[in-house]
Structures are given as structure tokens and as C-alpha cells.
């Protein structure tokens, strides 16, 4: 009987073909990834692994370093450092505040820039202005704008008949919100450009179909725009979250963590410990804790995003 051999043949052939196909694809994938992988391995992974390893030592930045493996000692010490945990709380408020506001403000701007208004070219370039300002002067410029006396913001509020003596960066209540606003300002071009590029990718037919169905602006946003933009929103918020968490220099130059420690962020701690106290081992332990906290938070966020994604697709 030929049937079994035939069956065997038909079964084996695609398998073999799939095998070579997979191998070819893998080779192709490796070739495509390699150019990126090499610099990352040499200049990013290697230094990072060294730094991670330091977290388990008592390394100091001294002339003749002599240090040993201390296990989890650094982490035990860190657990008792109340300043570090306080600053972590402030850091998270700052990070979440900036990230959420950045997304909301940038989404609004990106939609406006994508809605066929006049002077689009000009406005799109103007929207990128914060990017063009060198970070070295961003903080100095905002300090001038916020200045309690002789600053344009208070002068403007005064001309509207509003109180014109708010000490934006010096008052305990307004310092953190004022700094968050600068954070939003700095990050907006990045987020806006990203979202705008995403909006451009949405096939126009989808919108046309929706408007033909009689959907209003809001309905079109929730039914077409938001779902299509979803992967990009997820990407940019995760990254913004990380960057905002890490951007201590802006806060530092604006307020030096003041007033009264209201704007002290945890990266500043790590910096002080690593460079000013030269306890690089202990500082590396702080870095590890920060990585764990951020990665955990992001894992929760990304998981919920992917789950929504799946249910949406299924539904």
C-alpha cells in the first residue's frame, strides 16, 4: 500500500522545509540585528555588568581601590536609609506627574497638528522649540520666567489683575508643580513628534469609514485613533517614564532639590553617593534598587496594556 508512505512524505516534506526556512530566517535575523548588537554589547552591556557587580562589593573611588565581595550588605544598609526612600516617593510623584501630563498635552497637540489646520508647517516646527533650546540654558531660562519679582510670568498675571507675587520656585506648595511643568515642557516635542508620526500611519480610510458611519470626533478618536495608536502610546509612555525618572539635572539646576527637600529626586541620591561620597559600591546598590522598582512598575503597566490589547483584538 502506498498510502502510508504518501502520508509520511506529505508530513515530512513541509517539516523539512519549515526547518530550513526557520534556520534561514534566523540567520537573516541575526544579520539584521548584529550591527546594533555589537556596540550595545561593548559599550552598554559590559559597563553595566561591571556596575551591577559593584553593587555587591564595598568598592570606593579611591587611588588604590581594594575591595571585596560583601554580598547583600549594601542592600541591608540601604533599607535603613530613610532619606533614600523619601526621595523615591518624591521621584515617583514627579515621574508619574510629568509622564501623564506629557502624554495628555502632547496628544492634544499632535491631534491639532494632524487636523489640517493652516500654517501646519510652521506650527509643527514651533512645536519642537523646547528641543532646540540647549538644556544648559533651559533651567536658567525658566528660573527667569518664574522669578518672583521681575519675572514675565508674574508680570503677565499682574496685568490680568491676578496675584503677581507668587514665589513659584521658592514656595513649598508651588515648587514641585512648577518644576513638573518645566518637565512637561521639555518632554513635549519628543512625545508630540512620536504621536504625530503614529497618527500619520493610521490609514485615512479608517477615518473615512468611521465618519461615513456618522461617528463624531470623540467617537472617532476612541474607535479609530486610540486603538491604532495604542502600541506607540505604550512605547512612548514607558520611555518617558524612565527618562523623567532619570532626569535629575533639570530639577537640580532649577531648585537644587529645594525648597525644604520638596523636589529631591532619588537619582540625585545615587549621584551624591557615587561621586561625592565616592562609595560606588553602595551607589550601585541604589542603582539596582531603582532599576528593580522601575522595571516592576513598567512590567505591571506593559502587562495591563498587552492584556487590553488582546481582549480588544479578540472582541
Amino acid at each position: 500500500m502506498t498510502t502510508p508512505t504518501l502520508a509520511e512524505k506529505t508530513k515530512a516534506a513541509p517539516q523539512r522545509r519549515r526547518g530550513t526556512l526557520v534556520r534561514a530566517r534566523r540567520r537573516e535575523a541575526i544579520a539584521l540585528v548584529m550591527p546594533s548588537l555589537i556596540p550595545i554589547l561593548v559599550l552598554s552591556v559590559a559597563p553595566l555588568v561591571v556596575a551591577l557587580a559593584l553593587a555587591f562589593t564595598d568598592a570606593r573611588l579611591v587611588r588604590n581601590p581594594d575591595y571585596e565581595f560583601v554580598g547583600l550588605d549594601n542592600f541591608g544598609r540601604l533599607a535603613g536609609n530613610s532619606f533614600f526612600w523619601d526621595s523615591l516617593r518624591i521621584g515617583l510623584i514627579w515621574t508619574v506627574g510629568v509622564t501623564v501630563l506629557q502624554l495628555a498635552a502632547s496628544m492634544g497637540l499632535a491631534l491639532l497638528l494632524n487636523s489640517g489646520l493652516r500654517l501646519q508647517g510652521l506650527t509643527r516646527v514651533l512645536a519642537l522649540v523646547p528641543w532646540a533650546m540647549p538644556p544648559v540654558v533651559v533651567a536658567i531660562m525658566w528660573q527667569m520666567i518664574y522669578s518672583a519679582n521681575g519675572g514675565p510670568l508674574n508680570a503677565f498675571l499682574g496685568s490680568l489683575g491676578l496675584p503677581d507675587d507668587t514665589n513659584w520656585l521658592g514656595d513649598f506648595a508651588t515648587a514641585l508643580p512648577a518644576v513638573i511643568l518645566v518637565g512637561v515642557w521639555v518632554g513635549m516635542p519628543q512625545t508630540t513628534v512620536t504621536l504625530l508620526a503614529g497618527l500619520q500611519q493610521i490609514p485615512a480610510e479608517l477615518h473615512e469609514a468611521a465618519s461615513m458611519d456618522g461617528a463624531g470626533a470623540w467617537r472617532r478618536f476612541t474607535a479609530v485613533t486610540w486603538p491604532s495608536l495604542r502600541p506607540i502610546v505604550t512605547s512612548i509612555t514607558s520611555l518617558n517614564f524612565i527618562w523623567n525618572f532619570n532626569s535629575f539635572s533639570l530639577v537640580y539646576v532649577l531648585t537644587e532639590g529645594g525648597p525644604g527637600g520638596r523636589t529631591m529626586v532619588p537619582i540625585l541620591f545615587t549621584y551624591l553617593e557615587a561621586f561625592k561620597n565616592r562609595n560606588i559600591g553602595y551607589a550601585a546598590a541604589m542603582g539596582v534598587v531603582l532599576v528593580i522598582v522601575i522595571v516592576l512598575l513598567l512590567a505591571i503597566y506593559l502587562r495591563s496594556q498587552f492584556r487590553d490589547d488582546r481582549t480588544e483584538r479578540r472582541g
Binding site: 532619606f83 526621595s87 537644587e256 532639590g257 529645594g258 525644604g260 527637600g261 541620591f269 561625592k276
Partner: peptide, 13 residues
């Protein structure tokens, strides 16, 4: 330096 930035300055403020 650490005392100045994380302890003294906030406390004085």
C-alpha cells in the same frame, strides 16, 4: 557635600 545637599539645605530652608 551629601549632608549639605540632602540634609542641611532642606532643613535651613
Amino acid at each position: 557635600a551629601q549632608w549639605k545637599d540632602t540634609v542641611a539645605t532642606p532643613a535651613f530652608q
